[in-house]
Write a protein that binds this DNA or RNA. Sequence first.
DNA 1: TATTGTTATACTCTATAACTATA
DNA 2: TATAGTTATAGAGTATAACAATA
Lengths: 155, 155
Amino acid sequence: MESQARGVRARSTAAPQTDPEGFWPLLIEFALSQRFWWVKLCTDLDLTPMQGHALRMLDPERPVAMSSLADALVCDASNVTGIVDKLESRGLIARQGATRDRRIKMLVVTDRGRKLRDQLAARMLVPPPAVAALAPPARRRLAEVLRAILAERST
Amino acid sequence: MESQARGVRARSTAAPQTDPEGFWPLLIEFALSQRFWWVKLCTDLDLTPMQGHALRMLDPERPVAMSSLADALVCDASNVTGIVDKLESRGLIARQGATRDRRIKMLVVTDRGRKLRDQLAARMLVPPPAVAALAPPARRRLAEVLRAILAERST
DNA sequence: TATTGTTATACTCTATAACTATA
DNA sequence: TATAGTTATAGAGTATAACAATA
């Protein structure tokens, strides 16, 4: 949920029709609130949000084509060029030519990039107090549902 | 979850310590995936993501100060000036002077803005098939858990 | 003096279109 | 001809600093 300082908050003006328990609006409200969480996480590690996403989506075990990263980030290839430029200039990743198709450039995560990526992953996995305090059965149930939702790819 | 075209996906390299059910990583993965969902929702209504957030956070029932909107959007006041400029130039909101303190400018949602805001709210409330298919008891339980998390304000 | 909002500036993200070098 | 990536360009979000009006 976004800040409610001075009483400002999102207000719903329409009623849900297939979700009388209000589950979906709550999930959405939560998801949108994580915008700030992600920005802070990345900023703390001197990354922009998109640079953080890029580093997260790259595979530390094997090279990934620029075009694959563009797909993963759901943005244009021209955009990826700039994002990769910045990460490469900091020595976090590197461009490599592909052997068979010389048009393709593969991206590899450097040792330095891997360290930063691991830090990011570690911080991502630290749940906020409210989540850590949940009883295990409640977490287990919610985890099952989220797994089912993510498996659908329909959102 | 971001696109997995050509096999690219986020990989975790660290293990959670206080969340053996994997609840938190799933929740985060879900939250981050909603980035694209929100962008599309706003784009369909000819709004940028931030303009959508601004319209969502404003109160159609009463004027809101620029500074309050800045708090709600968690961004600088100078930033809000530009976002408000664009919404106002489209006739979706309007600036009003405050009576007691003439430094303050209050924002009101116009009739046109209200219609667009309602459309946005209505589309937000349509759950994806995987969510709509959940049994009511499951939804009810999960709604309780999410309410508890959001009430904490600690994320 | 302090606060509200604006302006100026600079950087990042974003897409489109034109370009190159390959295929 | 088609594809992978780059460059040029323009619009939007972002913060910092300096500013005007008001308190």
